[in-house]
Design a protein around this nucleic acid. Structure first.
Lengths: 143, 143
DNA sequence: TGGAATTCAATTGTACACAATCTAATTTTA
DNA sequence: TAAAATTAGATTGTGTACAATTGAATTCCA
């Protein structure tokens, strides 16, 4: 039982170490685009949805305004997005892509393939890990 | 193929989200001990090894001195550890547990069980995820 | 053996994460 | 409908992460 508990620790540590490993593999690819990994995730979400409120982005990426607000300001400073306060509900800030932000999608098109190659996931790893981890994430999702 | 690449992205995002989910589950448990999750990992390593250099800690936790030095100073400020520069090789700083640091092990004894319960990993998840992720980590380990 | 290369930790600077709090706007409800 | 509750985002403060650089100590090796 003590052993089981110790292994449980190590599983959590494995998740922590793996997350940082993945980010470190993105860094050289994204650095060429002047993006960090969290910034890239925001751009991915916007390339898919075009316009998203800060709240909606937070729900998608599981990040709060304390993280997103400064990150979005940095993306705006790079002219990739615009932050526009909604007129219907002035509490809401909607995030739009600029032309440069839309254009970046082409330059980022090969990132997924390069990461896949860099991380070297096997088909079995992919097909086992993805559903199993997503079930864990859903188990703890809000509502 | 486009689909495959997109899924690959999502796998990396799953790792990132899962890591933060796990940390958030540790927070209330560790907060009671006045520890953060990375600080807890350092304490775990020291409870196991007693004395470790900054370099050795970095190897175990896959963290560099830029992260560890301030973290270790915070643990020292809490009187849980002592940082002692080696006399044989003055480049090396060895980390020792204080009496309080050793004592904390008892108070932290139930953390693994509580986390296991909080995260609700099934035996199948544990037995599948742990070896698969550790193989990925080893695949990218130095040397 | 003495200068070059290496090693270890610390420092600097940028960018997340997130708890807690705050403010303004909107919705609820008594 | 006006006060209370809720919501959205921003702000503040603490603590990681990590690249890049620095400086001191040690090792290499010509």
């Amino acid at each position: 039982m003590k052993q089981q508990l110790k292994l449980s620790n190590q599983l959590c540590f494995s998740f922590y170490a793996l997350s940082r490993l993945v980010t470190s593999h993105y860094q050289p690819l994204l650095g060429a685009l002047d993006l960090t990994y969290p910034q890239y995730l925001v751009m991915l979400a916007l390339w898919e949805h075009d316009i998203l409120s800060v709240k909606a982005l937070g729900r998608l990426l599981m990040l709060d305004s304390g993280t997103l607000t400064p990150l979005l300001k940095r993306l705006e400073a790079k002219k990739l997005i615009k932050r526009v306060r909604s007129k219907e509900d002035e509490r809401i800030v909607n995030i739009h892509l600029t032309a440069a932000g839309k254009h970046l999608q082409q330059q980022a098109a090969d990132v997924p393939e390069k990461i896949s190659c860099s991380m070297g996931f096997t088909a079995e790893e992919f097909n086992t890990l993805k559903p199993m981890i997503d079930i864990i994430l859903q188990r703890h999702a809000e509502e």
